[in-house]
């Protein structure tokens, strides 16, 4: 499924990762183009979360190569911090800082990591809150917001660092059905602006409509990948057929 395009922003070559004796990644090779939206799906325990957490080194791969925005992930701390400020990440459990207001959540890393002045950071934060649709919540604490609002703040917090790549690790799995839509809308708008996105999600509607490519993980390997139209219409691998029949049957 190599499309041979010129500008890969993430390159993974034969990435392997073990947790003790358990092998979570068994040689993953793929690349992501700039501006591409990749949705990673797969059964639980298939290594999809581990894979995207390896991209900003929240997990450390043990064999193979990962190059992000031209920087290779080695154990050099400076490299890691540089990559992390280029790669935004949104978590399943939001992970907002509960002791800070929404505004402080979004400005903190801008001031300390990006070295912006406080007023610049606040302006940027307000613009982003506007963009995710909750400017009126700026002064509240995360505990006072609904799950959907918290996740949108988390997205704004990542975007404030002007990342080149956004990683989403099951961003809607901890949300009530009514709130999933508001988060997906924000993600869809983001994809429309040309942001490179790698998202682990179970939202097949989102995958079908927004993704450029879908990647199916199983047992630590990529089983099949391809554009959504092909992937859903004629899956080639029997594992893909079984997975799709299970999630689409009801």
């Amino acid at each position: 499924m190599e499309n041979g395009a010129a500008n890969p922003i993430i390159v993974c070559e034969n990435v392997k990762k073990w947790f003790g004796d358990f092998q979570a990644l068994r040689g993953v090779t793929t690349s992501v183009e700039e501006g591409e939206v990749v949705v990673v799906i797969g059964p639980s325990g298939s290594g999809k979360s581990t894979f995207i957490r390896c991209i900003n080194r929240l997990e450390q791969h043990q064999e193979g190569r990962i190059v992000v925005a031209g920087i290779e992930l080695t154990s050099d701390v400076r490299n890691i911090e540089r990559i992390r400020s280029e790669v935004g990440m949104v978590f399943q459990q939001f992970n907002l800082f509960p002791h800070l207001t929404v505004m402080q959540n979004i400005t903190l890393a801008q001031v300390w990591v990006r070295k912006r002045s406080r007023s610049d950071a606040e302006q940027r934060a307000m613009a982003l809150l506007e963009r995710v649709g909750i400017p009126e919540q700026a002064a509240k604490y995360p505990g006072q917001l609904s799950g959907g609002q918290q996740q949108r703040v988390a997205i704004a917090r990542s975007l404030a660092m002007d990342p080149k790549i956004m990683l989403f690790d099951e961003p809607t799995s901890a949300l009530d059905p009514e709130m999933i839509k508001e988060v997906l809308e924000v993600m869809q708008e983001l994809a429309g602006t040309g942001m490179t996105i790698v998202a682990v999600t179970h939202e097949m509607g989102f995958a079908r409509e927004v993704a450029n490519r879908i990647v199916l993980f199983d047992e630590g390997q990529i089983v099949e990948e391809g554009p959504p139209s092909e992937f859903f219409a004629n899956p080639r691998h029997p594992r893909t057929k079984m997975f799709l029949s299970q999630i689409l049957s009801h």
Binding site: F91, N95, R157
Partner: peptide, 13 residues
């Protein structure tokens, strides 16, 4: 929680 350290690491702190 561990999520707090992960979030701050992901922001490049």
């Amino acid at each position: 929680s561990k999520g707090q350290t992960e979030a701050s690491r992901a922001l490049g702190m």
